[in-house]
Design a protein around this nucleic acid. Sequence first.
RNA 1: GCUGGUGUAGCUCAAUGGUAGAGCAUCUGAUUUGUAAUCAGGAGGUUGCGGGUUCAAAUCCCAUCGCCAGCUCCA
Length: 569
Amino acid sequence: MSSKNILSHSCEHLLAYAILNTYPHTLLGTDSKPHHNGFYYEVRLEKQLTTSDLTEIEKEMRRLISLSLNFYHFDLRHKEAISLFSLCKQIYKIEILKDIKSNSVSIYKCGNYFDLCRGPHIKNLNQIKEFKLLNISSSYWKSNKQNAILYRIAGMAFPSINDLNSYLKLLEESKKRDHRNLASSFDLFSASNPLIGAGLNIWLPNGAIIRSVIEDYLKKIHLLNGYNFVYSPHIASIDLWKTSGHWAYYKDSMYPPMCVDKSSYVLKPMNCPFHITAFKAHQHSYRDLPIRLAEFGTVYRYELPGVLHGLLRLRGFTQDDSHIFCEFSQIDLELRNIISLALTILKKFGFCKFEVTISTRPDKYIGTLKQWEIAEDSLKKAILYHNLKYSIDIGNGAFYGPKIDIKLKDSLNRLWQCSTIQLDFINALQFDINFINKHGKLEHPIIIHRALLGSFERFIGILIEEYAGAFPFWLAPEQIRILNISEKHISFSKSIESILKHEGFRVKTFLKNEPLSAKIRNAQTDKIPIVLIIGDKEISEKQVAIRLRNSSHLSMEINSLIAYLKQLE
RNA sequence: GCUGGUGUAGCUCAAUGGUAGAGCAUCUGAUUUGUAAUCAGGAGGUUGCGGGUUCAAAUCCCAUCGCCAGCUCCA
């Protein structure tokens, strides 16, 4: 354990000590998991705990620090430990002890507080220089919804006041990068309008440009990679979802049915049944496979209100979705190609760091164990082929098959699933789709579900935070801004604007009567990649002065400028 | 959904039971500007929505909706 973690860990026990002193009937639950950022302690209290109570607890923590108490370590036999914690009626500690198999357990003591703990700890409480309790939230005992609800009190410990201040500064910086804040300064989207409904987003013009540029890029690269695009409706008869199995497995996460002509229809939570139906439109030969059907499909899922989060978690979002129908023998190559395409796309946006997980069979599943085993193996092989590190997320697969997820981090280092690649041996059976194999016999194809950005909304949300609003030239809603120095330069500025527009660039002339320095400042805060300045000198020399976002200057005539801009795209 | 917060002008925030205010943005006028802020003036509000307490509510209470952090969930 690093010294910082030891400090943090000790502070978390100080927190428990202070809570017990302040509220003697507190039941101690679990403390932070090893790699948690900061510390927390989960406790059960009769009293309702509010933020103002945190101040009281902090005060008690500081009082205990001022007593300069030492931590003492000793081992107890398992039995002795149980009777010790029974004596003070710490029922959750007894439950934890019951899960520990060894004969002796490690106990730490500090003042009249003792706790079950592996350690290590700092020697003396006075080594804790700075800390801050951050929030109260609820959590379930053993993270299980069926169990009792505990309070989770979270905080951070710091070796010095400077560390505390730089942490607060970091939070401040992250807040500035937050896509929800940048959205209002740059008019990107509106994802929180109560009149429209929670979790439903409107792309404002600037955000819409970014999205459509990305769509164009994706469309092109998918066509190059052998995909064909289809379009499907936003609602479908409930029978479709009964056939696919979604109704049975995910009814609670779907928007409730609406009645049309005495039939029930639901909003689509996924695109796959449509693509499967599209595959079924023709009789296929093994020679046609793989068939790759793609769609930027908007789906609607009922997410719990508490989980909605800007663009990163919505109830309506558009996936860059695709379903690949192939033979069993084609799986490995397809998976490799999909991962390779995913990596190409992520790289295009500058993402080199991400986390890869394989999610395995969940409790509720369809298909046979043998099928799941083969599917999980294929996924591992494909990841290893690309030399990617991965972790296993046990039981988190879709009901119809295991999956590979690629996760990206937001500005607060929270992970969000973006790319997902799912193997499915089952839906071909449910929908009874098939192709004619080499031997002239009907055979069910394998279906691979995949989305590479995941959703445009989530991906662009992460992208906004990654770039902190300073989009690269090819994505910037306003790529070029032309600033005239005075009124007599307007017509030349307009003619440059027109030339650049005809070349396909997103360009605006900013004609307001302001000093140049003010216009430059605006362009800089608007994070415009290229600023052109037009004055007497430019007109007489038939050149433009260029200011880049990093404040460096260039000067060139219009044809060279066009060539220069083209190579930026 | 759970726990704790929070909601005031387009944005960021102030006003602790007694006349809703500032900065930025916007609009108007003057200024005609050479690489991060020219000056002056105007407009902008059912304090999320609905109840209640009070002579009086942005402020206190209840309910509801949205948002934030964390938990649970995430096909």
